[in-house]
């Protein structure tokens, strides 16, 4: 009996050796969302339109965060398939704004150079913001063409170009905002402020 008790105590020691909640607390500090309150009802995954594509489902990701599996979570595919449709967050009985958690995970994974399993989505964000920084507005046609080049598939959707053109839905040239200086300044200031906080 005595031995059994010691054994149990030792197992407990292993389980609580390190503070497994540190990662969940980091997320809470960054976006205010307390993932530790998740009790695995799985409503998030049930309503998720992208669950069919995710290797790690949303509820599994929440559990992994609770267990402090930082590396596994930051290299998961979940947040890269997430389309921010907000169905999970709307239905979560604990009121966790799951999309805000996804945003923190995406931002952290990029900043810490984690491997991103859905390459095309990372490219999408990069090319999108590059266009906004260059012109102040998104230049849709240039954006689509740059993205295709980055994905090494330059003729992707080439059949749609003439269709949209005929309908007057594509602008051939970007619309540059007049005060482009202030846009560049905005992007620079964001980078400066973020770097000063690392």
């Amino acid at each position: 009996m005595r031995n059994k008790l010691e054994e149990a105590k030792n197992i407990m020691k292993v389980a609580v050796k390190e503070d497994t909640t540190a990662f969940a607390k980091e997320i809470q500090r960054k976006c205010g969302q307390d993932v530790l309150t998740c009790y695995q009802c799985r409503k998030c995954t049930m309503g998720c339109p992208m669950a069919f594509r995710m290797e790690t489902k949303v509820n599994e990701l929440m559990r992994a965060i609770q267990l402090g599996l930082r590396d596994e979570v930051l290299s998961a595919d979940t947040m890269w398939w997430c389309v921010s449709c907000e169905t999970c967050a709307t239905r979560c009985p604990q009121g966790i704004e799951i999309v805000e958690v996804m945003d923190v995970l995406r931002e952290t994974a990029i900043k810490e150079d984690y491997y991103i399993p859905v390459e095309s989505i990372e490219a999408f964000h990069k090319v999108f913001l590059r266009s906004v920084e260059a012109y102040g507005r998104l230049y849709e046609m240039g954006f689509a063409m740059d993205l295709n080049l980055m994905l090494k598939d330059p003729l992707k959707d080439a059949d749609l170009g003439p269709v949209m053109m005929a309908k007057g839905k594509l602008k051939l040239r970007p619309h540059k905002v007049k005060d482009l200086k202030s846009v560049k300044k905005l992007f620079e200031n964001v980078r400066k402020l973020e770097e000063s906080r690392v």
Partner: peptide
């Protein structure tokens, strides 16, 4: 002379940028 709001890429990459735009 309005500028882009940054959807849907700013919030996936930088929270501060996603609010500033």
């Amino acid at each position: 002379d309005w500028i882009c709001c940054g959807a849907s890429s700013a919030h996936a990459t930088s929270h501060l940028l996603s609010i500033a735009l």
